[in-house]
Design a binder for these strands. Structure first.
Lengths: 187, 187
DNA sequence: GCTTTTGGCTAACTTCATTAGCCAAGGGGG
DNA sequence: CCCCCTTGGCTAATGAAGTTAGCCAAAAGC
């Protein structure tokens, strides 16, 4: 039996890709093993189990999202930066719904958890957007939570097909960016 | 063996309560059966299975949330109505995280699905709040999605312990209400 | 070339959801 | 009061999924 040449990173990457295809809840160890051309128990040589796999996928997704948002913001400030960040975030979540779903409800286990670092990077990218607005120091954390709630809420509702009525979703999202910009400038 | 006197409503109510205790993912048919003093297969005389149970819990939760929000809004308009609605919604989700989690990612199966009616009632309660603002007709749907994203995002992030840094969560939520009010009045 | 670690494997166990099929409890009509 | 029949329990069995134990060959290091 020739070796498959797997390592943790390859398993996690394949798991993330599979989650995007079949949905977070549809991701099973058996399906992932089949995709990798390997029997299920072999996966346990690379990841600790389903919970560990999920945590690693979450760290990957948060890092990718941070890169996407951070990159999109480069060179912009104020409303442009806000719009770029929000669009990049939503684009990422809609393109990778399975990975992103893996991030919901997982907390970092400790200070050296790679998830904590990725999460902090994503937060930092949004914090950079807020520097383009004239906010009191005490308002920055609140504004950050607001932005995160808004983006997370919209993206997950859209990913879950939660907008059932008729108006155009892209148009709503642009409206929402305008709305946030107005609110932040009026702070 | 004496009868337990169950019916679908009792099973759903117990399932919702159990989901709030052990979390949406921790709710199993076996645990629910044990809670009701019955063997697992007996539940299938009252609900179609786990998916059906989840759908019914979701319908219950949306209806309860609609009642909470609708009731809280009574007699208020404008900023007061917005604040009352947002607080009622968040209070409900934080008090019933398991039930509310059951509503994510389920779509009504048909027009006579009770979930559709509950969902519409909740939406209607938020729509009533928006009547206190001077919005163009074309903006109402967008504003509704914005409100829903904001409330849903904040409540689920909080329920998932997603706010890891230090600032006070209640204070952030009040800030968020102010923010939404400013943005809506500036439309 | 030998040894050690590594990464496959099969087999077995556990937990859950679900189905099949049995059987008593309880209600309605003779 | 008794019979019947629907209803709501039950046990037993099946199947999927996660996980563990333990074997064994392939690579890697000396």
């Amino acid at each position: 039996m020739p070796r498959a040449g797997l390592d943790p990173a390859a398993v996690v990457a394949a798991g993330a890709a599979l989650a995007d295809e079949v949905g977070h809840t549809g991701l099973t160890m058996g399906l992932l093993a089949e995709r990798l051309g390997v029997r299920t128990p072999s996966l346990y040589k690379h990841v600790g189990g389903q919970a560990d796999l999920n945590r690693r996928i979450a760290a990957l997704a948060l890092g990718e999202a941070a890169d996407a948002v951070g990159g999109a913001v480069q060179g912009y400030a104020g409303r442009d930066a806000l719009a770029a960040a929000a669009r990049a975030f939503r684009t990422y979540v809609v393109a990778h719904p399975g990975r992103y779903a893996a991030t919901i409800g997982v907390e970092p286990t400790g200070p050296d958890d790679p998830m904590a670092a990725s999460s902090a990077r994503l937060l930092g990218a949004f914090r950079a957007v807020l520097r383009g607005y004239d906010l009191a120091d005490s308002d920055v954390d609140h504004a950050l939570r607001m932005l995160r709630s808004l983006c997370h809420g919209f993206a997950t509702l859209q990913a879950a097909d939660g907008f059932q009525w008729s108006a155009d979703v892209d148009e709503s999202f642009e409206w929402l960016i305008d709305f946030a910009d107005r609110g932040l400038r009026a702070s």
